[in-house]
């Protein structure tokens, strides 16, 4: 049990410190790397409480895909200078109060959620669910997700799909005058269309019209 708590505290301390470093560090790319470290230690914590499926999915989705895109954008935009301007210069310090207000709202929302949990114990009570503990984590998740919560599950899938299509529609622009290769056209070309044999007369040459 001691080993277990040593691991727990190691991972949670790493998670908290890296979460602080995300906001504190000057270089934005470093912030993203600390964010990744945070994700990884959180998924380690998930695995430690036995939610192995959730931990692995967290690694795959957040670290493997989302954070890569974050890193991509941050590296390309060179946000590092911008961030320094925001916090160092006088002119744009109006961002800080807005950020403070939003973070306070989120903080109170979290408190309200936890409070609501306390007054509705039958909603998320583990003892009430008829869980079979011999079944693996993934199985029990699937059994709940595709039976009791199927509508919620489908609905969140639809929301994600709409968000994805929306992102594509917002960023899509049709560019004129771009040369594109049509693979079907290229493959279906035949020798008779492309090559023509001509008798070349001396001192006259050939006239090619195209």
């Amino acid at each position: 049990m001691i080993a277990h708590s040593i691991f727990f505290y190691t991972f949670s301390i790493i998670a908290i410190i890296s979460a602080i470093m995300v906001t504190v560090s000057k270089n934005t790319v470093h912030s993203v790397f600390f964010l990744i470290l945070d994700f990884i230690s959180i998924s380690c914590l998930f695995i430690m409480i036995g939610a192995e499926f959730l931990g692995m999915i967290m690694l795959i989705v957040y670290v493997g895909a989302v954070a890569v895109l974050f890193l991509f954008v941050v590296m390309m935009l060179n946000v590092a200078q911008q961030k320094n301007q925001w916090f160092a210069s006088e002119a744009s310090s109006k961002h800080i109060p807005v950020g403070l207000i939003i973070s306070t709202i989120i903080f109170f929302e979290l408190i309200i959620v936890i409070g609501g949990w306390k007054y509705k114990p039958d909603l998320f009570d583990i003892n009430n669910t008829t869980n079979n503990f011999n079944v693996s984590n993934t199985h029990s998740l699937g059994q709940v997700l595709y039976t009791d919560y199927i509508h919620v599950f489908q609905l969140s899938g639809m929301i994600l799909l709409v968000a994805m299509i929306g992102a594509i529609v917002l960023t899509f622009r049709k560019r004129e005058g771009v040369k594109k290769q049509s693979y079907i056209k290229q493959i279906s070309r035949e020798r008779s269309e492309g090559v023509e044999l001509l008798d070349v007369k001396t001192n006259k040459g050939v006239k090619i019209d195209d």
Binding site: I57, I60, V63, A65, T138
Partner: peptide, 13 residues
């Protein structure tokens, strides 16, 4: 239990 997910996660890292 989640061996294949582990492999997939590590290769995506």
């Amino acid at each position: 239990n989640v061996g294949i997910l582990y492999l997939f996660a590590v290769s995506s890292l």
